[in-house]
């Protein structure tokens, strides 16, 4: 993309050439960008259309885009005013946010601590635990829903709060998978923090705990943000285990609740679903945009040098 010398060209031509050059180097990129953006958002436009359509059941006819606009779906969502579909949307949202936050915090702390141990200490069995972890994390918890169900059943008989229909139990199950993928992502990133920093601090008399909490965790903040975000999102979207653990409609998460609205053909409330989906997406979206700058560095830095 070497610069073309334009100084000798007459003025009109120069302006033209300038525009051509702009098009060749920048303008077309904007075109691509607009197309990509359209591609990304047109389903969301459709979702907004569904959410604002008046129908109680069924997929709103797409040819009637924004012909009838009403807030009925949103009203129902919050007031639960239809006898045929009971919607506990506020409960669902609150449950989901609670589960998401605790899962994210737990995952970040436990994953971070484990990654620190793997990255900074050399002890017997380190290699083995790492490999074992790598293998075990390949077993999706969802595949074990039968066993999870039976485990919670027997735990619940001893400690009710760890049994079925409890958000705590659901968080615990999610945290069971916390060490999995995340530890590897973090491990890679932890390795990028020079060990000389630790050693300097150690000479200064800092304990391992002080190094961990005071130095390392701050330096790896991007990856913590990424892991927290990813686990928040995945717990937000998780369906099977949540469905299995939470049996009372008021205790459901958004994923379970919204799915129930469209699961049955006879009375699939797509409009209600879309309205709920749009609202539920807001916390995720906000978090995502807020943490956006960390994501790229968090995802790649560990991978590059790990």
């Amino acid at each position: 993309m070497s610069a073309i010398d334009t100084s000798n060209v007459p003025l009109t031509n120069r302006a033209k050439a300038h525009r051509v050059k702009w098009w060749r180097e920048v303008g077309w990129r904007h075109c691509v960008g607009v197309v990509a953006v359209l591609y990304s958002i047109f389903p969301l436009v459709f979702a907004v259309n569904m959410a604002l359509s008046p129908g109680k059941t069924g997929v709103p006819d797409a040819s009637k885009l924004f012909q009838q606009v009403t807030g009925d779906q949103f009203v129902t969502l919050f007031t639960n005013n239809r006898p045929e579909t009971q919607v506990h949307f506020l409960n669902w949202l609150a449950n989901t946010v609670i589960v998401g936050i605790f899962t994210a915090i737990g995952t970040v702390l436990m994953g971070g601590a484990a990654a620190y141990a793997f990255s900074r200490f050399r002890y017997k069995g380190r290699r083995t635990t790492l490999t074992a972890l790598l293998i075990i994390q390949m077993f999706p918890q969802m595949l074990a829903f039968v066993a999870v169900f039976l485990l919670l059943k027997s735990l619940g008989e001893v400690i009710p709060i760890l049994g079925q229909d409890s958000l705590v139990a659901l968080i615990c199950v999610y945290l069971g998978g916390a060490l999995g993928v995340n530890t590897f992502l973090m491990y890679g990133f932890f390795n990028t923090v020079p060990i000389s920093l630790d050693e300097a601090a150690k000479i200064d008399g800092a304990t391992h705990a002080q190094i961990f909490w005071g130095i390392i965790l701050r330096l790896v903040a991007p990856v913590l943000a990424v892991v927290g975000l990813l686990s928040f999102i995945s717990s937000f979207s998780e369906y099977i285990i949540a469905k299995l653990v939470l049996t009372t409609p008021t205790k459901w998460t958004v994923a379970v609740g919204l799915y129930s609205l469209v699961a049955n053909d006879r009375y699939a409330a797509w409009g209600l679903f879309a309205a709920g989906a749009l609202i539920a997406a807001i916390p995720v979206l906000a978090l995502f945009l807020f943490l956006q700058r960390y994501i790229v560095s968090g995802l790649t830095a560990g991978a590059v040098k790990g």
Binding site: F149, L150, K153, Q164, T247, T248, P249, S260, N264
Partner: peptide
């Protein structure tokens, strides 16, 4: 009165009662 989704009633009843609850 516990509200369930109709499609869940049958399978949930089967799995829960079999497990003793």
């Amino acid at each position: 009165l516990i509200q369930k989704v109709f499609d869940d009633l049958r399978k949930d009843f089967a799995s829960q009662v079999a497990a003793g609850s």
